[in-house]
Design a protein around this nucleic acid. Structure first.
Lengths: 144, 144
DNA sequence: TCTCGATGTAATCATTATAGTTACAACGGA
DNA sequence: TCCGTTGTAACTATAATGATTACATCGAGA
């Protein structure tokens, strides 16, 4: 399967950096930690900005949190860069043969089950705040 | 985001057909209900066969269940055609900057959280047997 | 044994998402 | 005004998906 893109993990990386770094977080600075191109970072930051998670100082440069760390969950980040609310991650083939009893009803039955599974996953993401995650990062590094 | 492929929903469709159809299920017959090319069906059936869910009468034609309907869960089908056991659906960027405290530790922390979310979803899939799903299909059609 | 329908699989093609890169206009603080 | 930074557009490469054609092989039944 094609996995979720690395946009998500990079987003968490960016937000952690912004939260922890005492210096100004420019896209160049972040790109160096992530080890990718600054444009990739700017594109992702654009999505985080749209979602109201960060704001950016145009011209001057630098990204800053728009909310408190404990007000941002992993679900918020996931919604910002991967899967919008009410978007289905399980694709279902459509235009099945309506004259076949299975073809006529498989979609609604399948979708219902998949929605339950997806919700269970997203509920888990909603349980973790960036504050918790950053605190685990700090533990691992022995404080920054 | 790139969703899970329709292989999964088609697989469930195929297995339901095989379970319910009184006549022999050839790839042509199934393809007509799914409304796609028979080769697509044969490829997916090949994966279901490898997973031990069905067997196929070579030469003569026709696909048959290898297990009882209540012995196959949606997780079994998912494992057969989408995500192998221990495979991560959340990608994580690697080769981060090891000299940055965030870059050095983000991967292990992120992966742990994602694994919990993925497990929650797969657990839900494990709760549904094909027997239940087929029974819901029957209800909708008013018996086949 | 021969025929004929079905399977298994390779090869090709179009489409789409991701990821990386270059280029450049516009912004705004020093 | 200058210069570093942001915001985007444009282009390229790669990979997964889905559809399709082609064909060797299998095996049940005539």
């Amino acid at each position: 399967m094609k996995k979720f893109s690395s946009r998500y993990s990079i987003s968490v990386h960016i937000l952690s950096l912004v939260a922890l770094s005492p210096t100004s977080c420019t896209s160049d600075f972040i790109a160096e930690s992530v080890n990718t191109n600054p444009v990739i970072i700017r594109r992702i930051i654009g999505m985080l900005k749209k979602a109201g998670l960060v704001h950016v100082r145009a011209g001057a440069g630098g990204t800053y949190l728009q909310k408190e760390l404990d007000e941002i969950t992993l679900l918020d980040v996931y919604r910002a860069v991967e899967v919008a609310d009410h978007e289905h991650i399980f694709n279902c083939h459509d235009e099945t043969n309506p004259r076949c009893p299975v073809g006529a009803n498989i979609e609604s039955v399948f979708r219902t089950k998949m929605l339950q599974a997806q919700s269970a996953m997203e509920h888990e993401l909603d349980q973790v705040t960036l504050k918790q995650l950053v605190s685990e990062l700090k533990e691992k590094t022995g404080s920054i």
